[in-house]
């Protein structure tokens, strides 16, 4: 079987759902090999079918360009004709540079990849959702290897636990050439899933009127991530990173619950590929109702507490 090289720009204690989806996709195309700049990734990668893991001689983290050297070396060692990564910024940066070095075709933000790596990079069909979900396209690379980043929530993760794989260090070390890191601050760790990877997103807009409390409670009850419209982030009610829309994050969760968001084009561009959309808005003419599978014209400060009560009642 042909090797499919999977790149993780970071590996924390355990793989994120997006990373697990990527391994699942790789295994469907060939034999999954992993390369990462992370130190000691072995425990997090203890899955059936993951036997080949490459790292550098020391930890290498973005934006260190040595990550590109590591990737290039791993492609040569594994003989992989297909390289997959998540669509995070750090991952895209490294893979885009790799593609230049390999003179390879780069396709970003895929929602699916079909084919068999052993038939060659150019035989794969890569599916995308473009123009804010307005079109679906299929694409191929015309020059291998195929370097592809994949959007979270695109495939169902199906991995079974296995032995911790052996890790091989490649002769690449962290460098400080070009870009020097002067300081790092961990972003506040959240108990909630990452917005782009979450199965459920609850989002609030202008109608929250500065009070995201009820929505946060609902998010915790549903195990959801919190999103927001641009109006809410611009008002400073919630961190900018929560912005869903044309200039923010694009999400395709199973369920998107929209509260107090009118649903103008800017917002729709970031969420209209969600599987199910539920909307609460007090304006019956809000455009969000044109795309909602279930809509409630009402006061979200009454509807959401009742939802919470009902969800908790059903649990007991």
């Amino acid at each position: 079987m042909s090797a499919v090289l999977v790149f993780f720009d970071a590996v924390d204690g355990s793989l994120s759902s997006g990373q697990q989806e990527l391994l699942t996709l790789a295994a469907s195309l060939g034999e999954a090999h992993v390369v990462t700049g992370a130190a000691d990734p072995s425990e997090a990668l203890a899955f059936d079918g993951v036997e080949v893991v490459w790292t550098g001689e020391s930890e290498i983290s973005a934006p260190d360009p040595a990550l590109v050297d590591l990737l290039e070396t791993a492609v040569r060692e594994s003989g992989a004709d297909v390289v997959l990564g998540t669509d995070s910024a750090d991952s895209t940066d490294a893979l885009a540079r790799l593609a230049v070095r390999l003179e390879a075709g780069l396709i970003t933000d895929a929602v699916g990849v079909d084919g068999d790596a052993s038939s060659g990079a150019t035989s794969l069909t890569v599916h995308k959702s473009v123009l804010a979900g307005g079109y679906t396209t299929s694409a191929q690379v015309t020059s291998g290897p195929a370097v592809i980043t994949v959007r979270p929530n695109s495939v169902e993760a199906a991995l079974s636990a296995g032995a911790a794989p052996e890790v091989t260090a490649l002769p690449v070390s962290a460098s400080s050439s070009g870009v020097e890191v002067l300081g790092r601050t961990e972003l506040e760790a959240s108990e909630r899933p990452a917005l782009t990877e979450a199965r459920v997103v609850v989002a609030g807009g202008r109608g929250m009127d500065g009070n995201f409390g009820p929505l946060e409670e609902l998010a915790d009850e549903l195990g959801a991530a919190i999103g927001a419209s641009r109006a809410a982030t611009d008002a400073g009610w919630i961190d900018h990173a929560a912005q869903v829309g044309q200039t923010g994050v694009t999400v395709s969760p199973q369920l998107y619950l929209s509260a107090g968001i009118s649903g103008a084009v800017q917002q729709r561009a970031g969420m209209q590929t969600a599987q199910t959309i539920v909307a609460i808005n007090k304006d019956e003419d809000a455009p969000v109702f044109e795309i909602a599978d279930f809509g409630v014209v009402g006061d979200l400060f009454e509807v959401i507490p009742q939802m919470l009560e009902e969800l908790r009642r059903r649990k007991t």
């Binding site: 593609a99 003179e103 390879a104 075709g105 780069l106 396709i107 069909t125 959702s129 473009v130 979900g133 307005g134 079109y135 679906t136 396209t137 299929s138 694409a139 191929q140 690379v141 015309t142 020059s143 209209q272 590929t273 959309i277 019956e284 109702f289 044109e290 795309i291 909602a292 599978d293 279930f294 809509g295 409630v296 014209v297 009402g298 006061d299 009454e302 509807v303």
Partner: peptide
Amino acid sequence: ASRTQVTAAAPRPPREAGEVITD
């Protein structure tokens, strides 16, 4: 020369409005 080619492109069917109720 591009190193990728788009082989198919189709507009996504528009989402249809579902049930809207008044609280």
